[in-house]
């Protein structure tokens, strides 16, 4: 089963390496990974899709991610109502006979034609993953030259920002702020 994790991380050099390295250490496969700025300056938002079946291991990876100093918030949104989209660019072969036919397919499939060449055109589709796959299947007989996908991006549904605590849902313990006075000595 695929899991979708959202992570907010500090936008600093080496942070992505720390995250990816964690998945390698725990022998998890990353199916897709999308990174970009979010609504807060200095913070990057990641959507990570893994194919981990074991829920304990899955929970472990979330906690391990949170343990990284530069990771601010983590949420596993696999079982949360979420809008998940992926952007894909498909370069497909075209000739004089089927050009109109392909344009119709694009229209039907909600795909934009972003480039038209003599023997190819590029379609852009932003859809749920299932619909993207269906479009690719329809286009395949025409001859697909190239496909590039952005990886999934996810956002939870509803008016509020999802309650992403510094911790996995339900743990509900208080956190000390880093500003709290901390004794110089451990004991």
């Amino acid at each position: 089963m695929q899991h979708t994790i959202i992570a907010l991380v500090e936008d600093k050099p080496g942070v992505l390496n720390r995250i990816v390295s964690l998945f390698r250490r725990r022998n998890y496969n990353i199916k897709s990974l999308a990174v970009g700025p979010c609504e807060t300056p200095g913070v990057s938002r990641l959507t990570i899709v893994t194919d981990e079946n074991d829920s304990i291991r899955q929970n472990l990876v979330c906690n391990n991610l949170l343990k990284l100093i530069n990771v601010i918030e983590v949420e596993d949104v696999t079982n949360v109502p979420t809008v998940i989209r992926e952007n894909v660019l498909i370069k497909v072969q075209v000739n004089a006979q089927n050009r109109e036919e392909l344009k119709n397919i694009a229209k039907e499939r909600n795909a934009r034609i972003v480039d038209e060449g003599e023997r190819s055109m590029i379609l852009e589709v932003t859809e749920s993953v299932g619909k993207i796959q269906a479009t690719i299947d329809v286009l395949r007989p025409y001859g697909i030259l190239e496909i590039v996908r952005s990886g999934k991006i996810a956002i939870t549904r509803g008016d509020d920002r999802p309650e992403i605590k510094n911790g996995v849902a339900g743990r509900g313990t208080e956190s000390s702020r880093a500003t709290e006075q901390v004794n110089n000595y451990l004991y």
Binding site: I72, E73, G172, T173, E174, S175, S176, R177, T179
Partner: peptide, 18 residues
């Protein structure tokens, strides 16, 4: 000034329920 690490907040207390 206090150290600010937005992703680092060692936990403190157990909840009343716990």
């Amino acid at each position: 000034s206090p150290i600010v690490l937005p992703g680092y907040h060692p936990p403190r207390r157990a909840t009343g329920e716990q």
